[in-house]
């Protein structure tokens, strides 16, 4: 962990001045933190934020995560636990989250001229050429500024590619590496990174979803380290050029510039669970029709065409997400 953080081996992440460096700044438990920020009664309570129709959990405070309550659970299934642990449910207030998100972005913009707002609670910052500041302390400064000015906690991940910055952020959040919410891969030695990457499952890598994870695991690639050290040509032929790029990014070769990835264009989700269990087919049909209309609206708004439409319905699954974190 951090014991070997400062021994400079022949790390492929060692930074020369012209090498790109990225930071990913991510707000911790964003929606729940926004709710807690203004309400002193919520400070130490477990807080969940519910989807628009108060159907299911779309955000959890750290206390709720510690209770093991997964994302997407319908609220009516949580009544017993809520009473037992004093869980507070807040209706989602997207005006508040959007305002706080804009403020975070505004603060971050004063730290780098190039910023990509990746989602409502995550932004990439270009740190290239900032080596004299010391990336780690610059990241700590960002964290402190957001805490002081906005009262929100963020984690900062730093690496020589966006994929590494995202992974470093994950490590900062889970306290796998780094300290005080900042994890900087650029100051870690190669042996330290090898040790770290061998402990993280491959599914945590940005862009490696559930299906790719399953296929990689079938090939024996189970950890981040194994994916990083996989043959790029093999990955390209068995998967795609996109995953090959991920392999290179994990090696510290930056292939993705800021703003290059736009995940919204790939898939549009319009789904949620019902406030109560429904029994009539007509109710289900009506809901499906309105969700499809909503998805089509989003599709038109981004000028895309749909290649396929998938409709799923079923009994309540506890870890199905019911609403996108982007909120609108």
């Amino acid at each position: 962990m951090s014991s070997s953080a400062n021994s400079n081996g022949s790390s492929p992440n060692a930074v020369s001045p012209d090498r790109p460096v990225f930071a990913l700044v991510d707000c911790n438990n964003f929606y729940a933190s926004c709710e807690k920020l203004f309400d002193p009664r919520l400070k130490t309570r477990p807080v969940v934020v519910l989807s628009n129709n108060d159907g299911c959990v779309v955000a959890r405070s750290a206390e709720v995560k510690a209770l093991g309550i997964p994302m997407g659970v319908p609220w009516f299934q949580l009544q017993a636990q809520a009473r037992k642990h004093g869980i507070v449910a807040c209706s989602s207030n997207y005006a508040l989250y959007a305002d706080m998100s804009n403020r975070v972005v505004e603060v971050l913009s004063s730290f780098s001229p190039k910023i990509e707002v990746y989602s409502i609670d995550e932004s990439f910052l270009d740190f290239t050429g900032f080596e004299r500041q010391g990336y780690t302390s610059y990241g700590a400064e960002i964290r402190q500024r957001v805490a002081d000015w906005l009262g929100l906690a963020v984690c900062v991940g730093i690496g020589t590619s966006k994929t590494l910055a995202k992974l470093a952020n994950h490590c900062a959040k889970k306290s796998h590496a780094g300290a005080d919410g900042v994890c900087d891969f650029t100051v870690m030695s190669e042996p330290a990174l090898v040790q770290l990457f061998a402990r993280i499952v491959v599914g945590e890598v940005w862009g490696v979803g559930r299906q790719i994870t399953a296929r990689l695991e079938a090939m024996g690639i189970k950890t981040v380290l194994q994916l990083r050290d996989a043959n790029p040509e093999t990955i390209r032929s068995r998967f795609s050029v996109v995953l090959e790029r991920t392999v290179r990014e994990l090696r510290g070769i930056s292939c993705l510039d800021l703003q290059e990835v736009d995940p919204d264009k790939q898939q549009i989700m319009s789904s949620r669970s019902f406030g109560a269990v429904i029994y009539e087919l007509a109710d289900l049909e009506e809901a499906v029709a309105s969700y499809i209309a909503k998805a089509a609206e989003k599709l038109r708004a981004q000028d895309s065409l749909a290649g396929a439409v998938q409709v799923t319905s079923g009994p309540t699954f506890s870890n199905r997400r019911c609403r996108s974190t982007n909120g609108r």
């Binding site: 709710e35 203004f38 309400d39 207030n93 005006a95 508040l96 305002d99 804009n102």
Partner: peptide, 12 residues
């Protein structure tokens, strides 16, 4: 914009 009980934010 009114933000829940008793909080108002300046227009951005």
């Amino acid at each position: 914009a009114l933000f829940g009980p008793g909080i108002v934010v300046p227009m951005p």
